[in-house]
Each structure stands twice: as C-alpha cells, then as structure tokens.
Design a protein around this nucleic acid. Structure first.
Lengths: 253, 253
DNA sequence: GGGGTTTTTTCATGTTCATGCCGGTTTGAT
DNA sequence: ATCAAACCGGCATGAACATGAAAAAACCCC
C-alpha cells in the first residue's frame, strides 16, 4: 500500500467516523505510529485535517473560526502554521504592530484573548476583526486606503508612527532575499513599513516560502533589521541557513 | 475523547444551555474538575467563553456581539430607503464624509460607480467596503477603534479633520431632537462628529424614526447646524414639521 | 541487472503534553 | 463569621510527540 493510498483512507475514515487516532491507525495499517503521524501531518498541511494530541479531527467538524474572508486564498495551512509560530513572539503585554497582509491576518485570528495588548494596524479589515475583542486596544493608522492591499498609506499613516514605540512589529513582505532585503511593489507602502519597523524594538517577518523567490521595486528593510523570520517548511533549507547567517533567527513552521 | 473534542462539546453546550458548570461537566466527561477547568481556561483564551465561579458562560450571552450584528438587522427596509434618498445630496464630484453607523453603511453600498469621489470615513468596515471601488478615493481617519461602534476616535482621528474641507458630511446620530440637538452616548465619538460637521460645507443627517425618541449624553450638533434631515415615513409628521421649522429641510423617505 | 540515489519507513532518543493528585488560597452562600 | 465548594499552582507520570540516524524499499539511468 502506497503512502498516498493510506492517507486517502485515513481521510475517508476521519470523515466518516469523525475522528481518527494514531495508535489504532498504526495497528490497522500495520505500520508504526511515526508513519501515521507523518501522514496526519501531511493531511493537516493540505488543510484536510486538524491535528490533535493523540489523533486528528476533520476540519469540517470544528465549529470554530469562520470570519475574515479567507476564501480564495492560497497556502492557507502554511499561513496558519506561520501565524501560530508567530504567537511565540508576542509580548506578555504591551504594544505591537501588525502589518497588512493575509498571513498577518491569520495572526490576528490567532491572537489570545487573555493578554492585554495594544495593537497598531494599517488595515481596515484587520482593525474590524480585532475591534470587538475586549482584551485588545486597537489603534488604526489613518490615510488613504489602497484598494489592492487594503492598507492605509501616505502622510496620515506615517506621521503618528514617528511618535510611537512598540515592543514587536509583525511584518509582511511581497519579496524577501538576503541580497535585496524585504521588498514590496508599492513605494507608498514601503514608506509605511519602514516607519513601522522604525517604531518597533523587535521585528518579526511572516512570510511563506513563495515570498523568498522574488524581489520587488521598493525595499523597506534589510535582512539585518529583522530579528525573526517565520516561514513554512517549504522554505529551502539552504536559503534558510543563508538567511540565518545574515542575522535573523529563522523559523520553519 | 480528545481534549479538543471535549472543548468543542463544552462550547456547544454552553451555547445551547447558556451556561456550563465545572462539576457537571467533569462527571459527564468522566474527567477531573482540574481538566475541565483547564478546558474552560483554554476556551476563554480563545475568546469563546467567559469564565465565572463554578463554570462558564458563552461570551455572546453577555451583551457585546449581538449589539453589533443586531443593529444591522433591524429596520433594514427603512435604512435602505433613507440611504437611497441621501444619494440626492451627493455632489457631482468632490469630497464627502461618511460617519460610522448602520444607516450610513447602507449609503456606502448604494454609492454610484460613475462619480469620482473622495470619501472620508472613520469606520474600518466602511473603509473596507469602499476600498475596492475604483471610482472612490477612500481616506480613513486613524485612532483608537471603539469595539462597540467600530469607529475610530481620539486625537489621531480628530487632528486631520482640522485641515480638511469637504462638500457634504453624511452623519449618523443615536438621538435627535429639536431641543437637545444631535446626541450620542459616547463623548469621544461626539468630538469626532463635531469635527466632521465642522469640516463640511453641508451636513446631512441620516436617522430612522426611532432616533427621534431619545436624547443621549453627549451632544455634537444643534438642529440648526444640519442642512438636511433624512428619515423614514415612520417619523411623526408633527416632529418633522417642528424640525423643519428649526432650520433643516426634512425628508421622509 | 547493478551501483547510486531518492523516498519511505523504522528505530531510538529526548521532549512535550494531557491529566490527575495534593496542598493552600479564594469565593460566596448561609 | 463560617465553611464547604471552587480555584490555583506545582508536581508526577505515562502517553504522545519530534527528530535524526539508520535501514529498507523504490527508483533510475546506464
């Protein structure tokens, strides 16, 4: 039996029975638990299952978290993992900046409800998503709203950042490489991002592995300015090592 | 049974029954109370439950979310008609302010696609809704985002308004009467609304008939400052006449 | 068909996680 | 004011997990 077949069968069972557990599967397929675990991890990666301690549950069975239209997005599972890993960088309390982006959007979803945080954002949808959370103080940066990225830019967004100091900035980027640093196609957004990084003590980059292939017009930070880079396992280990050598801690979630 | 499954079930019960208690859950799931407590803590972390002595209750049962969702549900037809009528006050081109509110939200939906407009808003959801419209330039006022009304307030929202001049402001209000003027329960929002009106050449109030019954803490404008009041046919004709006598044109859509 | 490579699986390891148990403290009803 | 119930934090434990090295299987090109 091929791994692929086994995974299909695991998924089928999970969906019919509603859950699967590692030990039982290992016995029935006559393989070790490690193999099953790897299967489950693979299935979770493709977004079919949700891994839990001892087994897994099909995602559709979780009544959880609908909101913030993530419908037609790509690499959802990866971004989810990146966001989860990013939680480790959250301060106990204090202030953070969350840049506009789909991965940072997942981070917003994953923010715990038990920490008093002040969150600075320049994305109206993110602000909306967080506004009702009682433990969060949400500060929106004003300015012109760009239709493409749904982020505010220009002077009104820029100016307040000069007077701010936050503990951690969680940044997004369109492109990232050791040579060219962090880049975006939009100079106006680059200016904001630069100011965000300047206002933060620590800087965490959230970027799935596809971002490391490209460079874009406007650079807003060098690799050295970033403290932690969080990507997914699709990130080439060579690239990761090269990046780590250049400064930041690199996490492959 | 996995911890996640148990937590899911706990949440389901909490939502159907309205509350859960530690001891009962511990018995029914055949685990110790410590485990249940840990589950409840985890659920509280993710913002689903609110912990209380002896158990927990679902957050939606204690008065935050329903307000926001429910407000969009009531008087839809009336608000729709009010928004349609308000379109008559739109300038051919130029700049307008749209205040945060459910009725003004309808106006945003109804904005025509054939006019080049600059729209100033202080509501992240409204900004999101308009951002992708090509004919609109959307300017978001920054500041702290209030959870209840999803509007930005405080200094960062206020300051830019001092340097702005727009053609028309489309305002919302919680209360409206000839005697007390336009009122809201929240002083912070009153300040913004006042600044909005100050920045506008003309001022249009969008208010369904239920708003004319009440007055609230903070007044942000007198009736005389309003140029047009647009309400629905539920508005008492006597009140309408009284209002018209005080200054503004009154429309019953 | 045979050497080298890649992929898959297993095995052994140290670590993390879920849960239970126990003492001390807080809470809230009587 | 009293007191039992509920809560909290620490600790123990076994199961589940991650990981890297080694073995096995599959592949593959000549």
């Amino acid at each position: 039996m091929y791994a692929e077949e086994r995974q299909q069968e695991i998924l089928r069972r999970a969906r019919t029975i509603g859950r699967v557990d590692v030990v039982t599967l290992a016995e029935e397929f006559a393989v070790t638990t490690e193999t099953i675990r790897r299967d489950l991890t693979a299935l979770e990666r493709s977004g079919m299952l949700r891994r839990v301690h001892g087994g897994a549950i099909p995602v559709e069975r979780l009544g959880f978290e609908p909101e913030l239209a993530a419908r037609d997005e790509v690499l959802i599972a990866e971004k989810e993992r990146i966001a989860k890993a990013a939680l480790a960088e959250l301060p106990e309390d204090g202030a953070i900046i969350i840049d506009a982006g789909s991965t940072t959007g997942r981070l917003v979803q994953a923010l715990p409800a038990d920490r008093e945080l002040t969150v600075i954002v320049n994305s109206p949808p993110l602000a909306t998503a967080m506004a009702t959370r009682l433990n969060l103080t949400v500060i929106m940066l004003g300015g012109r709203v760009r239709g493409r990225t749904l982020a505010t830019v220009d002077d009104w967004a820029l100016r307040p950042l000069a007077d701010l100091h936050v503990d951690v900035a969680f940044m997004a980027a369109n492109g990232c490489s050791v040579a060219k640093g962090l880049t975006t196609p939009y100079p106006a957004e680059a200016a904001i991002k630069r100011a965000m990084i300047g206002a933060a003590q620590r800087c965490v980059l959230l970027a799935d592995h596809t971002k490391f292939a490209n460079n874009y017009l406007a650079r807003f930070a060098s690799i050295q300015e970033i403290d932690v880079v969080i990507s997914d396992t699709g990130l080439d280990t060579g690239v990761a090592a090269e990046m780590a050598a250049a400064g930041p801690e690199v996490v492959r979630a």
